[in-house]
Amino acid sequence: MAVEAPPTPAATVAPPRRRRIPPAVLLIAPSVIFMALLLGWPVIQGVLQAFRDEQGFTLEFVNRMVQDPYFWPAVRNTLLLIVVMIPLQFALAIAMALMLRSNPRLHKVHFFVWAIPLALSDLAAGLVWLSIFNDRGYLNSALSWFGLQGASWLAYDNQTSMFICVLIAELWRATSLVLIIVVAGLQGIPKDYDEAAQVFGATFWQRLRHVTLPLLKPSLQVALILRTILAFQTFAVAQALTGQNFPLVVGETYRWYTGLQNPNVAAALALVILVVSMLTSVFYLRALRDKNQGGLR
């Protein structure tokens, strides 16, 4: 994918013969202008809103944000969810992609089914899982048909089961995005490499560790960045399932904006998300790039 695009074919075309505006600039200029106007300007407004009131610069809104009883739980939940979910999701997606690669029976049907959540909004996904996990939902019903006593999976005093419910729902909803990217990445890797390693007696895990994953690195990098940024953005599933009991930072942004009608604190919360997403993206770029170069040397 583009972020870690192999540089080889890129530089070959278009040696600039005449001195005038390079075509690349003409091609990207509309997008830059458009984004600066519709995204850059609101972002600047947002930053200003978080730090300014009628009198000028103020930290009042940041203070309000930090003192809110939901703030630190929200930060903790957001980080916990991402740290646990992303590795699970990638392991699952890579496993699913490798399964598809071994051509199981009906692999086209399986692929179709696994991709369906890709087009599903997070709000709809929240409703889907609410029908399952609520106290009188399908999970407890199924347990009761087997003569088992159900549990209040989403009750506020049961943080662990609440977390697991949100985790399962998010795995269901968002793994397909990673799957698609990994499947596409796998298609770009010629099977010969894997077969060669097999001939030399490498086990499945050795081949995965030393052949497949290194070759998948560019795809994984994009998937990681995109998925993590999107993970910081979603809260509808958690909100549908747990209401206010499992607060997430984006959900808090929304609550401050719509429920409490305080756009300033909402902007401060949004900045927290922006900064954390940027830091993680840079971290991914660094971590994966360094290893990549080490491998080439």
Binding site: V43, Q45, Y257, S277, S281
Partner: peptide
């Protein structure tokens, strides 16, 4: 995909980061 140009890496990062801001906050301004 086809050209190298100065500022290509920052441009790509800029693209990704614009997705990092919650939509609620963008929507108001």
């Amino acid at each position: 995909a086809r050209f190298t140009f100065p500022g290509k890496d920052p441009y790509q990062l800029f693209l990704l980061f614009t997705r990092a801001l919650p939509i609620v906050v963008l929507s108001v301004p």
